[in-house]
Design a binder for these strands. Structure first.
Length: 473
RNA sequence: GGCCCCGUCGUCUAGUGGACCAGGACGCAGCCCUCUCAAGGCUGAGAUCGCGGGUUCGAAUCCCGCCGGGGCUACCA
């Protein structure tokens, strides 16, 4: 079989959301695995819906995920002439015809069809217009569109790689518009012309296109071109069970980046939306996905995006990162903190993170003193302020005299002191934790103290002790 | 309305006639570990495989009907 070539063909009407990203990913995985080519095509033939900057946004999203394309993206709006020539070809062979019906007439026609509970379809009034007459009127400047002349009978059968065999009665198909009166092609024409021109072997796209797939097949036939293989992907649903694509406010993938998700995790997450390797493996890198991907394993039923799973996956991927790599990624999110200073403390939080953004909160105390303490937090349940202050004093004195400052050197003296005070170690540790970090949830205390350094620890212990107001005593 | 697609724990899924009184994962509950929180380990609750009929010695798996959900039905993609 000849080379596999596939593509992702978004229309630039907004950002890249998870559903679109998944379509792109599946195309990418398949092309890579088959050592073929993955292309990007910009479908901007609808001038009314164009959004400025959307193409760049989509490209940024794909690049962030590591989905790269092999050729310069085809932009449809630059190919107007080519579509027009293709339409002429169809006109010549009778596979298409000019239609002069006005929007008003079409509206009336549909209203009547609806009233009679008939299928709403173009009634083919212009289909019987003699060719010469149609061309004369068009040449005279009369507004017209070009419609596909669908065969009046017969069956068109699609061998879909995901959905299986799907058959359509030609009689139920509409003579839809191929060329608009503004000279731009509709999706259908542009799709066939471009996929043929790009020698696309596999069309992997959203299943919203399934109902028009027979028309596309018929178009290829009319051109006498070899049609590509089709794979229609089921919808991705949001938590509200509404299709992601249509859901108001479907999130841009770049928002996941900003929220502290790893592209590796997002890729893994969307790969499993409607696909699985057929084993119990659930953490796969892009390379492994390329290796294991197969269109046959794509589920034909819609998948709901379960964001709790993304959180878990992200944690898993964070844990698998080399500490230096993690430090670098965290540094990007903590302006003013150099990577070198993050390097030693990042291992303390690596297995506690679910997103990159949580790191700055967890690590903040290494870089600045706590804002202040409520004695509430400092004083353990069942203790009073006076004895807490006394405990802090004794810790200070003890630590000051300590010669070593490794975690090992710190631990047993601290436990010993707790014993001496008659406090459970956990209580003393909690008081110290709050004194040193200003929070009750932190990385491991002793190691944190060790990394923080003797002087800063002593300062904070003293400040905490002093903060317990005499009135509390 | 018409055409088309889909239907296994809350969610993602394994499963393609016997090894399935349905396996894994997320989430949830409990226990263990433990200086907090996580991570990790163990245990548990959770699916009469949408429903009803067939076919078969035997069906989540094949057939038919029904129901439910969704998509498309534009000079949008």
């Amino acid at each position: 079989m000849s080379q596999v070539r596939d593509r992702y063909a978004p229309s630039p009407t907004g950002a890249l959301h998870l559903g679109g990203a998944r379509t792109a990913l599946f195309n990418y995985l398949f092309a890579r695995q088959q050592q073929g080519a993955f292309l990007l095509r910009i479908e901007d033939t609808d001038r009314a819906r164009l959004k400025e900057g959307s193409q760049a946004l989509i490209e940024d999203g794909l690049q962030w995920l590591g989905i790269t394309w092999d050729e310069i993206p085809l932009v449809q709006s630059t190919r107007k002439m080519i579509y027009q020539e293709a339409a002429e070809l169809l006109l010549g062979s009778g596979a298409a015809y000019r239609c002069f019906c006005t929007p008003e007439r079409l509206n009336e026609m549909r209203a009547e069809q609806r009233a009679r509970k008939e299928p709403e379809r173009y009634d083919r009034r212009c289909r019987s217009l003699p060719r010469q007459e149609a061309e004369r009127r068009a040449a005279g400047g009369e507004r017209n569109v070009i419609r596909q002349a669908i065969p009046l009978d017969g069956v068109t059968t699609l061998q879909d790689l995901v959905m299986g065999i799907v058959s359509f009665q030609n009689a139920t198909l509409d003579d839809h518009v191929l060329m608009k009166s503004d000279g731009f092609p509709t999706y259908h024409l542009a799709f066939a012309v471009d996929d043929h021109a790009s020698r696309i072997s596999h069309v992997i796209r959203g299943d919203g296109w399934l109902p028009s797939a027979p028309k596309h097949l018929l178009l290829f036939k009319a051109f006498n071109w070899e049609p590509p293989a089709f794979a229609h992907l089921p919808l991705v649903l949001g938590a509200d069970k509404k299709p992601l694509a249509k859901r108001h406010g479907a999130k841009d993938v770049l928002e996941y980046r900003d929220a502290g998700y790893l592209p590796e995790a997002v890729v893994n997450f969307i790969a499993f939306l409607g696909w699985s390797p057929g084993t119990t493996e659930d953490i796969l890198t892009m390379e492994q996905l390329v290796e294991k991907f197969s269109i046959e394993k794509i589920q034909p039923s819609p998948a709901m995006a379960n964001l709790e799973r993304l959180d878990w996956l992200n944690g898993q991927f964070i844990r698998r990162l080399a500490p230096a790599d993690l430090a670098r990624r965290i540094a990007e999110r903590m302006p003013g903190v150099p990577v070198e200073e993050l390097l030693p403390v990042v291992p303390l939080v690596q297995e506690r993170l679910r997103t990159l953004n949580e790191a700055s909160d967890m690590l903040a105390f290494f870089f600045k003193d706590p804002e202040g303490y409520g004695s509430q937090a400092l004083v353990p349940k069942g203790r009073d302020a006076a004895s807490t202050r006394e405990a802090l004093n004794q810790v200070g004195t003890m630590l000051e005299r300590l010669s070593g400052w490794s975690a090992e050197a710190l631990e047993s003296p601290l436990r010993g002191l707790a014993d001496q005070l008659g406090w459970p170690a956990r209580d003393l540790f909690m008081t110290l934790r709050v004194a040193i970090t200003g929070r009750t949830v932190t990385p491991p205390l002793i190691e944190s103290m060790s990394h923080l350094g003797k002087q800063r620890v002593l300062d904070r212990v003293k400040r905490a002790g002093d903060s317990i107001a005499p009135t509390d005593v």
